[in-house]
């Protein structure tokens, strides 16, 4: 047992009770802790020894119940598995705040209603195919390889760290958020589910394409679920299932054909590919404004040098796909 000696740990904790406090404040607690002590233990020590009025959610203290996600030095993570030592080394102090994108109930406790609503919205339950009923009295056969296809999505503990870290959630209430989409993926690859096609078609118009591809969810996820990669998988599956019929998927396909053809974007062509000739009309004033500032956008860009090399890469990646 390494008996690393205790280090000073200045904690600055967000305190706020809507309706009572005029505005949030940060209270500072000075603790002495060994470096591997989790932030959760530090907060519980504050509760037990200094200030029992500090409020937070916690239960398992072993990163499995998903209760204790919060922002620690601005990053959304689980307090129970974030040791104080590295935080102090990097930042000199530990600032603890409630998760973002969810209204504060009190101190570090947030209202998760919208998070749970998005999870329910993707209908997270098996919808067996009536034509292929489950084998009576026996488990569905499934090979280890088929189990592998779920990736790590079953590890999700619904902690909402991804939801807190996601700028798309902040920007657009129509975006279901990374957790809900990773959950959807889990059903779309489940061989026991009979509604893959419906699920994919529906999600195309219900927020799939609002993902900004920033990967902050994958960085925040304590369980390596990698929601952004699963969202990418869903997009590919959606296009394969339905073709590029939505703005989002048409934009994606347009982007690819542009790059493949010239190694650069033809922006006005991309707008047309995304919205169609008629659908483009409402974008016209916007386009004209850009054109006034940057007339070169209207020109067809020249292929970049070595664009033909690109074609080889595409060929190698996707020999089936016609040019």
């Amino acid at each position: 047992m390494p008996t690393a000696s205790a280090i000073p740990v200045p904690l600055e904790v967000y305190r706020f009770q809507p309706g009572v406090d005029a505005k949030p404040s940060y209270r500072r607690y000075e603790l002495e802790l060994s470096p591997h002590t989790p932030v959760l233990s530090a907060l519980l020590k504050v509760r037990a020894e200094v200030d029992p009025t500090l409020s937070l959610r916690y239960s398992c203290r072993s990163a499995i119940c998903g209760s204790c996600a919060m922002r620690i030095n601005s990053k959304s993570r689980l307090a129970c598995e974030t040791p104080v030592g590295p935080e102090i080394e990097r930042h000199g102090r530990i600032v603890v705040e409630p998760m973002a994108n969810q209204p504060v109930i009190r101190d570090l406790v947030v209202d998760q209603a919208s998070f749970w609503k998005e999870y329910e919205r993707i209908e997270p339950h098996l919808k067996p195919d009536p034509l292929h009923p489950m084998p009576e009295g026996r488990p569905n056969p499934m090979t280890p390889a088929e189990v592998e296809r779920f990736h790590d999505t079953p590890r999700c503990i619904a902690c909402a760290a991804c939801y807190s870290a996601c700028p798309a959630v902040a920007a657009d209430p129509a975006f279901p958020g990374p957790m809900a989409l990773a959950k959807l993926y889990r059903f779309v690859v489940d061989p026991r589910d009979g509604a893959h096609q419906d699920r994919l078609v529906r999600i195309q118009t219900e927020g799939l394409w609002l993902c900004l591809r920033c990967h902050l969810c994958t960085e925040a996820c304590p369980k390596d679920v990698r929601p952004s990669e699963r969202i990418r998988d869903l997009k590919e599956m959606a296009i394969a299932a339905q073709g590029a019929t939505e703005h989002g998927s048409r934009h994606a396909v347009g982007f690819k054909t542009n790059i493949r053809a010239a190694g650069t974007l033809n922006e006005s062509r991309l707008v047309r590919q995304t919205f169609g000739v008629v659908g483009m009309l409402p974008q016209l004033p916007h386009g004209l404004a850009i054109w006034r500032k940057k007339p070169e956008v209207a020109k067809r860009p020249r292929p970049i040098e070595g664009a033909d090399e690109l074609e080889k890469i595409y060929e190698a990646l996707d020999p089936e796909e016609p040019r």
Partner: peptide
């Protein structure tokens, strides 16, 4: 029977090579 039921409900159990639980 109750474990099989949980499998039918959607539990992702680990599998042997032959596809059984």
């Amino acid at each position: 029977p109750i474990v099989v039921e949980m499998e039918h409900f959607g539990t992702i159990f680990s599998r042997s090579d032959d596809g059984s639980l």
